[in-house]
C-alpha cells in the first residue's frame, strides 16, 4: 500500500474511498467535500460582513 507515512498522517485516507452515487453522478467523498467547501466559501465571502469599513456615507 502506501510506501511512506510521511510526518504524521493523523487521519489515514489510504484505504479505498467512499463514493456518492446519484444517477449518472458519481463522486468521491474527498472531492465532494472539496466542492461543498468551495461553494460554502463563495457564499461566506459574499455574505460575511467585511471588517474595517465604518465610514459609510460620503466619507473621504
Amino acid at each position: 500500500m502506501a510506501q511512506g507515512w510521511g510526518l504524521g498522517a493523523l487521519i489515514n485516507l489510504d484505504h479505498y474511498g467512499h463514493y456518492i452515487h446519484w444517477g449518472v453522478i458519481q463522486v468521491s467523498v474527498g472531492n465532494f467535500i472539496v466542492m461543498v467547501l468551495m461553494v460554502a466559501s463563495f457564499l461566506a465571502a459574499l455574505f460575511a460582513p467585511f471588517p474595517g469599513r465604518r465610514n459609510r456615507k460620503g466619507a473621504k
Binding site: Q3, G4, W5, G6, L7, G8
Partner: peptide, 13 residues
Amino acid sequence: WWHSSTLGHFVNS
C-alpha cells in the same frame, strides 16, 4: 526522493 524519505513525503504532501 519522496518515495523513500519521510521528509520527502511530507514535502510532497
